Computed example of a mutant assay.
Amino acid sequence: MLSKMLLAFSSICVFHVGFAQQSYGNSTVSALFAYGDSILDTGNNNLLLTLTKVNFFPYGRNFVGGRPTGRFGNGRVFSDMIAEGLGLKTLLPAYRDPTLSDDDLPTGVCFASGGSGLDAITARIQGVIWVSDQVNDFQNYITRLNGVVGDQEKTNQIISNAVYLISAGNNDIAITYFTTMTRRFQYTVPGYTDLLVTWTRDLIKSLYDMGARKFAVMGTLPLGCLPGARSMIGNVLKICEVFSNQAADMFNKKLSADLDNLSATFPGAKFMYIDMYNPLLGLINNPQANGFIDVTDGCCCTPTSIIPCLDASQYVFWDVAHPTEKSYQTITPSIIEAIKENLA
């Protein structure tokens, strides 16, 4: 159990809404595709030979039916809420779910894998799906989608009018650089964060070459303020760990600046940066404003919370690394509006 909790710190079903319509509801968004890590993963790790999976109680305690689905939280996760906010579906299904329905394909699926990252080492040391392999899954998805809609032109319309949601970098910084120190002997923090931005651009190019045109790219969480970071040995006061936060902030600023300049590199594409760092830090620094009580501990599955708390809605974090459903619900409305404004 301890190894699972350490990996969780490091790592950082389904409603059919019919085929994508030409008007795509109230926007020009046809579908949502999610890539990256556990912030977006809706169950792709369930059948992998890895400790980085959460298809067991108490995960999913507040999910429909109170069942664990492989989502890294107590209920729905960020990708589900973005899909709902865009008017697509209430839950974004995992592509590797063996029960995935063909009916769900036109409005999007999730390819993200908890514990994954931009660095190949990050995925390899945990036995999860690297982002490049998630792109391979997307290629297989396109073939399957074409068989469902039966028209290449319709397939192309869905692909080009979809939003591509990416969350990567959390585990590269938290695990590969600071926890295992695999890259720390090779690169300075500025050098490694430069690499992460380059790898993000490579991921975007792979998707762009396959028809993607609308990109919503998330920055990292305030990694040093996660309960797992606060509980490191010697941190008696459970204060935020400064070095992880500095690296996360550095990466986020570089990523945001790079996205501002990508339109010239990828003609016809739209890009937006999603700030996850400051909204979550806002909840941590002013919890009472949104009804939170505990910001330093996870409700569940930590050395100090072996028995889950009674009310996860009072906690900013569910476990050692992942926000609660309420935290996502609190920060997503403004993000959804920004996606509609910039990408729809």
Score class of each variant (00 low, 15 high):
residue 148 V to K: 03
residue 290 N to D: 14
residue 182 T to Y: 13
residue 148 V to E: 06
residue 11 S to Q: 05
residue 6 L to A: 09
residue 83 A to V: 01
residue 128 V to T: 15
residue 80 D to M: 07
residue 27 S to G: 05
residue 55 N to P: 05
residue 279 P to V: 08
residue 36 G to C: 01
residue 337 E to I: 10
residue 13 C to D: 00
residue 37 D to T: 11
residue 101 S to K: 12
residue 220 T to F: 07
residue 145 L to P: 01
residue 130 W to L: 08
residue 321 A to G: 15
residue 210 M to I: 12
residue 12 I to P: 00
residue 16 H to T: 10
residue 251 F to A: 01
residue 179 T to R: 08
residue 292 F to T: 06
residue 93 P to G: 10
residue 116 S to Q: 06
residue 267 P to F: 13
residue 96 R to C: 06
residue 320 V to F: 10
residue 132 S to M: 13
residue 164 Y to Q: 04
residue 247 A to E: 02
residue 98 P to Q: 03
residue 98 P to N: 02
residue 326 K to I: 03
residue 18 G to T: 08
residue 178 F to M: 06
residue 213 R to M: 11
residue 68 P to A: 14
residue 11 S to Y: 05
residue 48 L to I: 07
residue 38 S to P: 02
residue 5 M to V: 13
residue 259 L to P: 00
residue 41 D to C: 00
residue 128 V to F: 01
residue 256 S to V: 00
residue 58 P to N: 08
residue 193 T to N: 03
residue 310 L to H: 11
residue 142 I to P: 04
residue 338 A to F: 03
residue 315 Y to F: 15
residue 26 N to P: 05
residue 299 C to I: 11
residue 75 G to R: 04
residue 245 N to F: 09
residue 201 R to D: 14
residue 225 C to P: 03
residue 47 L to C: 06
residue 74 N to V: 08
residue 187 Y to L: 07
residue 193 T to I: 04
residue 334 S to F: 10
residue 183 R to W: 03
residue 341 E to K: 14
residue 207 L to G: 01
residue 58 P to D: 08
residue 46 N to M: 02
residue 323 P to G: 09
residue 306 I to H: 11
residue 43 G to C: 11
residue 261 N to A: 15
residue 51 L to E: 11
residue 316 V to T: 12
residue 311 D to R: 10
residue 38 S to D: 05
residue 248 A to M: 06
residue 139 Q to L: 15
residue 182 T to P: 00
residue 271 F to H: 02
residue 325 E to F: 12
residue 130 W to H: 15
residue 224 G to A: 08
residue 128 V to Q: 09
residue 339 I to Y: 00
residue 146 N to C: 06
residue 265 T to R: 13
residue 97 D to G: 00
residue 257 A to H: 09
residue 266 F to E: 01
residue 254 K to N: 06
residue 214 K to C: 03
residue 118 L to D: 05
residue 110 C to G: 14
residue 236 V to E: 13
residue 203 L to Q: 02
residue 198 T to Q: 15
residue 294 D to M: 14
residue 153 E to K: 02
residue 96 R to D: 10
residue 78 F to K: 04
residue 120 A to N: 02
residue 86 L to N: 01
residue 109 V to S: 09
residue 119 D to G: 01
residue 164 Y to V: 02
residue 168 A to H: 06
residue 237 L to I: 09
residue 254 K to S: 04
residue 337 E to M: 11
residue 53 K to M: 03
residue 51 L to F: 11
residue 202 D to Y: 07
residue 13 C to Y: 01
residue 145 L to M: 04
residue 159 I to H: 08
residue 126 Q to P: 02
residue 124 R to W: 09
residue 159 I to D: 05
residue 218 M to C: 15
residue 320 V to N: 10
residue 214 K to V: 04
residue 275 D to S: 11
residue 185 F to W: 13
residue 128 V to R: 04
residue 150 G to P: 07
residue 86 L to T: 01
residue 193 T to R: 02
residue 305 S to Q: 15
residue 168 A to V: 10
residue 286 N to S: 15
residue 301 C to T: 12
residue 140 N to T: 10
residue 68 P to S: 12
residue 55 N to I: 12
residue 175 I to N: 13
residue 74 N to C: 09
residue 64 V to I: 14
residue 317 F to R: 08
residue 59 Y to N: 11
residue 61 R to I: 13
residue 18 G to F: 09
residue 108 G to N: 03
residue 122 T to K: 02
residue 108 G to S: 05
residue 60 G to V: 00
residue 317 F to I: 08
residue 178 F to T: 05
residue 51 L to V: 10
residue 328 Y to G: 04
residue 20 A to K: 03
residue 195 L to Y: 04
